[in-house]
C-alpha cells in the first residue's frame, strides 16, 4: 500500500519533471519501501503544510550535498522542485548551508546561531563523511551528532538525518560503518527520521541504475544521482510528515 503510494509519487514526479528535463534523465531509480519508511514523524512540517504556512527547509552538509559548479542540479534543489510538485499551492523554500571539511562537532557548534538567522521548519542534516575520513573517535562523533540534533530541536525545527554516500571506490580507504551505525543510533534515540542515503545508493548500484564504480569526468552522472536523491528525499519527508493525499486538501 505504502509502496504503491511511493510508486505513484515517483511516477508523478517523473511526469512532472519530464517536460523540463530530457526524457532519459528521468531515472527509474526505484527505492524499496523499507528504505523510505520511518516510524518517526515530522510534526512541524505537517503543521506548516496543513496551516498553509511556508515550508522552510534547510540542508546542512558538506561537499557531498552539492555538485561542484552545478548547485542547481544538486539534491537540495531537486528536493525543492519535487516537493513543489507534490504540494501544489504550498510555498516550499530549500536553502543550503554547506561547509566543506566540517566535522559533526564543528557543524553542531554553529547550529544555535544558524537557526536564529534562518528559522527553518525542517533541517536536513547530512553528516558523517568528514568524520569518517578523519576517523574521529566514534563516541565523540555520536555525542556531537546527538548534541547537534538536540540544538536543532530546541530551536524549534524538525530534523532529518542523512548519512554518508555509498562510495564503492573508496571503501577500502574510508571506514564508514562506525559512523553509519552511530547516526542510526542517534536517530533511534531521538526518534527522528534517518534518510539512509548509503543504503539507497547501494541499492541503485546493485540494481544497475547507476555505475558508481565508473570514472567519469563530466557531471552528468552526479546530476542524475542527485536528482534521484532529491526525489527520494521528498518522498521520505512527505511520508514521515504523513502528508498523504487525504491530508492535502
Amino acid at each position: 500500500m505504502r509502496s504503491g503510494l511511493i510508486l505513484g509519487l515517483a511516477l508523478l514526479a517523473c511526469v512532472a519533471v519530464a517536460p523540463v528535463a530530457r526524457a532519459e534523465e528521468a531515472e527509474t531509480c526505484q527505492v524499496p519501501a523499507s528504505l523510505l519508511s520511518t516510524e518517526s514523524s515530522l510534526p512541524k512540517v505537517a503543521d506548516a503544510v496543513r496551516s498553509g504556512r511556508p515550508l522552510e527547509i534547510l540542508v546542512v552538509g558538506s561537499r557531498s550535498s552539492t555538485i561542484p559548479g552545478s548547485q542547481d542540479a544538486a539534491y537540495p534543489a531537486r528536493l525543492q522542485a519535487a516537493l513543489k510538485d507534490k504540494l501544489p499551492g504550498a510555498t516550499v523554500n530549500v536553502s543550503v548551508e554547506i561547509v566543506p571539511k566540517q566535522t559533526a562537532e564543528e557543524a553542531a557548534g554553529g547550529f544555535v546561531k544558524l537557526l536564529e538567522a534562518k528559522r527553518p521548519t525542517l533541517v536536513v542534516w547530512q553528516t558523517g563523511t568528514v568524520d569518517a575520513m578523519r576517523s574521529t573517535d566514534p563516541d565523540d562523533f555520536r555525542a556531537a551528532v546527538g548534541n547537534g540534533v538536540t540544538a536543532l530541536q530546541n530551536a524549534g525545527a524538525d530534523v532529518v538525518l542523512m548519512n554518508l554516500q555509498y562510495s564503492p571506490r573508496t571503501e577500502t580507504m574510508i571506514s564508514g560503518s562506525p559512523y553509519l551505525d552511530n547516526i542510526r543510533a542517534v536517530a533511534q534515540e531521538h526518534d527522528i527520521p534517518l534518510f539512509d542515503r548509503f543504503s539507497i545508493m547501494r541499492q541503485w548500484s546493485e540494481q544497475g541504475d547507476f555505475d558508481l564504480y565508473s570514472a567519469v569526468h563530466g557531471t552528468d552522472l552526479a546530476k542524475r544521482v542527485h536528482d534521484c536523491i532529491g526525489r527520494a528525499l521528498s518522498g521520505f519527508i512527505f511520508d514521515a510528515a504523513h502528508l498523504g493525499p487525504a491530508q492535502q486538501n
Partner: peptide, 25 residues
C-alpha cells in the same frame, strides 16, 4: 600493497559525485 592500490585509484579515478570522498587521498 594497500599503497599501490590506492595510488592507482587516486591517479585513474575521477568522478565529481565523489569529489569529497576522494579527499581521502
Amino acid at each position: 600493497i594497500f599503497l599501490a592500490e590506492i595510488s592507482y585509484v587516486a591517479t585513474s579515478f575521477e568522478n565529481p559525485l565523489y569529489s569529497e570522498e576522494m579527499g581521502i587521498m
